[in-house]
């Protein structure tokens, strides 16, 4: 399992790719494996304002449904519509083609609580 160094992470297994005031969000390879075959991704509406820690999306496998939380406050600027017809992207390419949504960050909102790949790896060891 790999956790790219250029990404930020949350303890609830989201990854964040920061690009200026934009943050692209997906789930980590650990989460993708735990979920097993993803069958459906409930995407948020573009334009929706969200708070950090708020449930934004739900990822479903055959026997489980997992909430995806907004890592930071902002507005949903884009969603990965490719997941609608091909939810397996989330398993096959969780850091690239399997991204879920993109936030336009609220200016000035604190970007606290995000983890580096090393810190995230530590939380995983704790979970085991």
């Amino acid at each position: 399992m790999e956790f790219p160094h250029d990404l930020k992470y949350t303890s609830t297994h989201e990854w964040i790719r920061m690009d200026g005031n934009r943050a692209r969000v997906g789930v980590t390879s650990f989460a993708a494996q735990e979920l097993s075959d993803v069958v459906y991704v409930d995407l948020p509406e573009v334009g929706k304002e969200v708070q950090a820690g708020q449930e934004v999306s739900v990822v479903e496998s055959v026997k489980a449904a997992s909430s995806i939380y907004a890592p930071l406050a902002g507005r949903v600027a884009d969603v990965n519509t490719a997941l609608k017809s091909n939810p397996a992207l989330l398993n096959e390419s969780c850091y690239q083609e399997g991204w879920i949504f993109e936030l336009e960050l609220t200016p000035g909102a604190p970007a606290q609580g995000l983890l580096t790949s090393k810190e995230y790896l530590k939380t995983l060891e704790g979970e085991k």
Binding site: Y40, E60, S61, V62, K63, A64, A65
Partner: peptide, 12 residues
């Protein structure tokens, strides 16, 4: 589509 149902989704 059992993720809609109570035995998986519980209160949701």
């Amino acid at each position: 589509l059992q993720t809609r149902e109570q035995h998986i989704r519980r209160e949701k």
